[in-house]
């Protein structure tokens, strides 16, 4: 019997240790697993590396972890947001590390990590500051740079519906990084708005097959 349903967000994140690398889904607030991040803030793990599109804002989600001093490094494409103060202050003070990654390269590095690919060549970023120190190669007459795959200890993602095998569907553009992040972590934890019976999800419309998901936790309503 496979049952990945976890009774609470607290128990879903309890084993995340100091120094963990964690993928966090979301594009701004859309698809952000806010309940799991709150539970992680409560749990208190430190020296975390957070890989996400943004670096949090308004003191919630990733910004709460950063404000608590739990994050040593952020890997993201766009840290600058309205009220991204928690990150901004620590960054200017040199107290948090930033690895800035073009958004498509970020997505592809995660996809590669999940697909067992070590890295890839891309034209994106060639000749810019973000290519400094990276291996280059001309392919079909176009300059490329080498980017490595991202694999992590955990992925915290937000989905819409989930079943006990870990099959997931998403809601609108809340899908964003969730499906690829689910593939690239040793342990993927999904917060869902609804837990459904096995077989209730149409196999044609399941976006994340359960093989990629270790834990599913029901959270209260949409957030």
């Amino acid at each position: 019997m496979i049952d990945k349903i976890i009774p609470s967000v607290a128990s879903a994140v309890q084993d995340i240790g100091d120094g963990s690398t964690i993928l966090v889904s979301g594009f701004g607030g859309a698809g952000l697993p806010i309940y799991l991040l709150d539970a992680l803030a409560e749990q208190g793990a430190k020296n975390l590396t957070i890989i996400s599109n943004n670096a949090g804002n308004s003191g919630i989600g990733i910004a709460k972890l950063i404000g608590n001093g739990q994050v040593k490094k952020v890997v993201c494409s766009f840290p600058r947001q309205p009220e991204s103060g928690a990150f901004d202050d620590l960054y200017r003070a040199g107290k948090i590390e930033l690895e800035l990654v073009p958004q498509g390269t970020l997505a592809e590095r995660i996809r590669a990590g999940g697909a067992g690919i070590g890295g890839f060549y891309t034209p994106t970023g060639y000749g810019t500051e973000l290519a400094i120190g990276k291996d280059t190669r001309v392919i079909d007459g176009v300059n490329h740079i080498f980017e490595t795959a991202i694999k992590t200890d955990y992925a915290l993602i937000k989905a819409d519906k989930g079943d006990r095998w870990g099959n997931l569907t998403y809601h609108r553009t809340g899908r964003n990084f969730g499906p690829i992040m689910a593939t690239a972590a040793r342990c993927t934890i999904a917060q869902v708005n609804q837990v459904v019976e096995l077989g209730a999800l149409d196999p044609e419309t399941i976006v994340t097959p359960g093989i990629f998901v270790k834990r599913v936790v029901l959270v209260g309503g949409k957030s």
Binding site: Q103, E108, T173, R175, N176
Partner: peptide, 24 residues
């Protein structure tokens, strides 16, 4: 719908025939 936003994180709509996909 706060889960339906554009690149600037503003709420948007979908036209008939729209499709959704993941980031990769």
């Amino acid at each position: 719908d706060e889960e339906l936003v554009n690149a600037g994180k503003q709420p948007v709509t979908m036209l008939p025939g729209a499709s959704l996909c993941h980031h990769a």
